[in-house]
């Protein structure tokens, strides 16, 4: 398939135009000097780099217009390196452009496809030699080879098995238990309802038992946000309402979309916003999703107070926190 339409005639390669430096020795000399200047600038750059590395204190700052105060050592080394590299390149290119031969040459190109006869010969050879192996005829070998090749990938895959434990129920569990105190993050103080005014929030974690240490895996599942509203502002089911305490409501801070910390609470609109993908949750309606890609509300933690008046969890989370996974049942 090709375009058979008649074409204009190809005038052929344009005539070579000589550069000034080819004909005028003075111009060539000038170009040579320019190249030399560029290479010298590069050498000066290296000297600036060495000076900045050895003699400029790392805590010195200098004022550069537009950029403001800049670290002198970092800037000196960087600009030194820039000069030393950039001007070698500029010099080499200028040299190639102005002094090396600039005659464009034509190289022939041949079609990759071989001559018809050679190719037919080659194809025939491949067919013949392939047939000689008998793979096509000996179906027992073909099938058993297929089986072994199909299975061979399993061993390296299996070797990866010990990369980590099986998830089991880990994704569905947090450290919150009945009666676990809520403590502030990062200071670890227990909280009384009176500590929170209406419109106040607190970032909380479960209290550590003596001897326990808090790992990041725990924080990644346990982080909770405590918000106080006026009790009459809630639009909750009676069950969910019983999970709140005097207008204080607690949600998992781990986004049900992709696990970012949803800690961005707008006090006036009572919305929680995830800064990663902007899922927006409506706090009075049990963190119902009102915008963005999250598909589920944030899990609510049932809270109450203990005998000393500190806020505690009524019970563990009733659903897995964080992003969805295949085994999640709701």
């Amino acid at each position: 398939m090709s375009d058979k339409a008649p074409r204009l005639s190809d005038p052929g390669l344009p005539e070579h135009v000589h550069r000034k430096a080819d004909t005028d020795p003075a111009a060539a000399k000038k170009a040579e000097r320019q190249v030399a200047i560029l290479f010298t600038l590069s050498a000066l750059g290296t000297i600036l780099f060495i000076y900045s590395y050895i003699w400029v204190k790392t805590d010195r700052f200098i004022f550069i217009p537009i950029m403001g105060d800049q670290n002198a050592s970092q800037l000196g080394m960087g600009i030194g390196l820039t000069f030393s590299l950039l001007f070698i390149g500029m010099g080499a290119i200028h040299w190639a452009k102005s002094l090396m031969p600039d005659n464009e040459v034509a190289a022939e190109r041949h079609e990759f496809r071989s001559e018809e006869a050679d190719r037919a010969d080659f194809v025939a050879t491949v067919k013949e030699q392939g047939a000689a192996s008998g793979l096509g005829r000996r179906s027992l070998i073909k099938r058993s080879l297929g089986l072994s090749l199909g299975l061979i990938g399993l061993s390296p895959l299996l070797l990866l098995r010990d990369l980590g434990p099986l998830p089991k129920k880990s994704l569905e569990q947090t450290s919150w238990k009945t009666g676990t105190r809520l403590v502030t993050d990062p200071s670890g103080r227990p909280i009384k309802p009176s500590d929170l005014e209406v419109g106040a929030v607190a970032q909380v974690l479960p209290e550590l038992q003596p001897g326990q240490e808090r790992t990041l895996e725990n924080v990644g599942k346990d982080a909770v946000l405590l918000i106080r509203l006026r009790p009459e502002e809630f639009e909750l089911s009676p069950e969910r309402l019983s999970w709140t305490y005097q207008g204080i409501i607690a949600f998992s801070k781990i986004c049900t979309h992709m696990g970012c910390a949803v800690a961005l609470y707008e006090q006036q609109t009572k919305h929680l916003l995830c800064p990663c993908h902007q899922s927006t949750f409506d706090v009075p309606r049990a963190a119902k999703v009102i915008f963005g890609p999250a598909a589920r509300p944030l899990p609510q933690l049932a809270i109450t107070v203990d005998s000393e008046g500190y806020l505690v969890a009524q019970k563990p989370f009733t659903e897995p926190v964080g992003p969805s996974f295949w085994e999640r049942s709701s």
């Binding site: 502030t184 909280i191 005014e197 419109g199 106040a200 929030v201 609470y265 006090q267």
Partner: peptide, 11 residues
């Protein structure tokens, strides 16, 4: 405005 309060017991 939108900012929540941070009481003296929380911070």
């Amino acid at each position: 405005q939108s900012m929540p309060k941070f009481g003296d017991k929380i911070i």
